[in-house]
């Protein structure tokens, strides 16, 4: 399927359905696809499950989506931060559900989804409340817990540059979850600072090959 180079962020998030699972890239604000999230708020999809490392910072980006009442459930590793007041308030009022996942397990569950792995055994979390009641197996003398893949209907990713085939390069630690989420969703949307012509990206430097990407939109810096 060819990549759609969108005119604006609203076109890039068109068609997101109520009840979707949305993978949202970023670690704090680094790599957070703010323009796409703002467009998703305008687009109006609700009852969303959001998968992201954090649960919003300040009042923009993911925090704004939460504040707009569009999120039923957050799957993340680290909701509580000094500036996570939007999530904190909703959680304490029982207005948003939380599934807490260790950060590496969160990434690996999406990697598994993107790689066609049915499930995997992971040592992280054994003996802790996050593994209570879960299926475990001892492998080579070490107890592991069974983890299932985590698919998205949509992934919203912030990258640095894209070419018109959807190949993506990232910048510094803003890469974080982007390349993994880009493999794990049915529809993958990337906001980038610049869309360049085919051939302008060094093929050796491409991090996310365009095969994973459905839509790109240039949002400037």
């Amino acid at each position: 399927m060819t990549v759609l180079v969108c005119a604006d962020a609203d076109e890039a998030v068109a068609g997101v359905r109520d009840g979707s699972t949305v993978l949202v890239g970023g670690f704090g604000m680094a790599g957070m696809p703010v323009a796409l999230i703002d467009a998703l708020i305008r687009q109006g999809a609700t009852d969303l499950t959001v998968v992201s490392n954090n649960a919003g910072n300040g009042d923009t980006g993911l925090a704004a989506l939460l504040a707009a009442g569009r999120v039923r459930k957050v799957v993340c590793s680290f909701p509580r931060q000094s500036d996570s007041w939007v999530f904190d308030g909703l959680y304490r009022q029982g207005r948003v559900e939380l599934e807490l996942v260790p950060q590496g397990t969160l990434a690996e569950r999406m990697r598994a989804a993107g790689a066609g792995i049915g499930a995997f055994y992971c040592p992280t979390g054994v003996g802790t409340p996050l593994a209570e009641g879960r299926e475990t197996r001892e492998i080579d003398g070490r107890v592991h817990v069974l983890e299932y893949p985590l698919h998205g209907d949509v992934a919203l990713v912030g990258a640095y540059r894209a070419d018109r085939m959807g190949n993506l390069v990232y910048r510094k630690t803003a890469r974080n979850f982007g390349p993994v989420m880009a493999t794990a969703a049915t529809t993958v949307v990337a906001q980038v600072r610049e869309v360049v012509d085919v051939g302008a990206l060094d093929p050796e430097a491409v991090v996310t090959p365009g095969i994973y990407v459905d839509r790109v939109v240039e949002v400037g810096s």
């Binding site: 590496g104 630690t173 890469r175 993994v180």
Partner: peptide, 26 residues
Amino acid sequence: PDLTNAGKIPVTELPGAAYFHHADSF
């Protein structure tokens, strides 16, 4: 803003730095 540590504090890179995605990092 694209270069922070795990505490979201802006940091610098040293010669020989490498970047990688979260699944690789863990």
